[in-house]
Amino acid sequence: MDFFGIPIQAVLGQLMLGIVNGSFYAVLSLGLAIIFGVLKIVNFAHGAFFMLGAFVAFMSGRYLGIDYWAALFIAPLVVACIGIVFEYLFLRRLYGLDPIYGLLLTFSLVLVLEGGFRVAFGSSGQPYPTPELLRGVFNLGFMVLPYYRAFVIVAALSVCLATWFLIERTRLGASLRAATERPDLTQAFGINVPLLVTLTYGAGVGLAAFAGVLAAPIFHVNPSMGSNLVIIIFAVVVIGGLGSIIGAIVTGLALGIVEGFTRVFYSEFSSTIVFLVMVAVLLLRPAGLFGRTEA
C-alpha cells in the first residue's frame, strides 16, 4: 500500500509521532493561552517550566526515590508553587505596563533557569526510565505503538479536556472568565481577583510541568529541552488565537499532525512548517483561527 509513493507504514508512523508531539503542544499551549488570557503576559518561560517539570521528576526519582506515578502529581505541584512565588514577587509588578516587559522578564527567567540547570547537570541529557507498567508495545499489524506513547496521548488529552471543562463549565471558571473581561467589576462582586490571577499563573506553569514529566521518558531530560519548544508553542497559540482555550488545544494537536505529515515528505522542514502556517494564518485571519476579531 502506498501513499503518494511512500509506504503507508511510514506515513502512519509519522502520523502517530505527530499526534504524540501534538499532545505536548496542546497541553503547553493551553497553559500559555490561559496565562495570556488572564494576566495579559506572554510567558516566555513556559518552555523553561516544562524543562523544570522534567527535572523535578528526574531529581525526585534519583534523590528521593519517588516513582513516575507520584512524580506525575508532585512535579506539577512543585513547579506551580515556584511559578506562584515568581508571580507574587516579580511578575505582579509589571501589570498594567506594556506587555513587552512581561515578555522580557520571563525571557530573563529562561536564561536563569536554563543556565542554572546547565551549571548543575551539564548540557547533555539525563535518561529517565519509562515506568515498568508501560514498557512494551501494541502491535497493530501495520505498525507498532509503544504503550507509553499511547498513554501520553490519553493523559495529555484528558488533562486538556478537564481544564477546558473547569474553565468553561464551572463556577470557578466563570469567575475566571469574568476576571479576564472586567477585573474591576469582578472584584466589586467580591471575588479576590489578584488571588485568582496568581493561581492562574501557577496552574498554567503547572500544566507545562505536567507535560514535562510526560516528556521525560521520551526525550532526554536536559536543560535546553524547552528552549526551542517555546517558540513553537508561541506559534501554536498565535495561530489558534491568543487567549482562546479551545483554539490552543485543537491547534496544538493539528499542528503536531501537520508536522508529522511534513516529516514524511520533507523531513528537514518539519520544524519550520509551523512558522509558515503562522505567517499564512496571520495574513488571512489576523485574530487567529479561533480568536475573536478585535475592534
Binding site: S108, L109, V110, L111, V112, E114, G115, G116, R118, V119
Partner: peptide, 8 residues
C-alpha cells in the same frame, strides 16, 4: 554556564 545565569 554561570554567564547565562548572571546575564539573566
Amino acid at each position: 554556564a554561570w554567564v547565562t545565569v548572571i546575564i539573566g
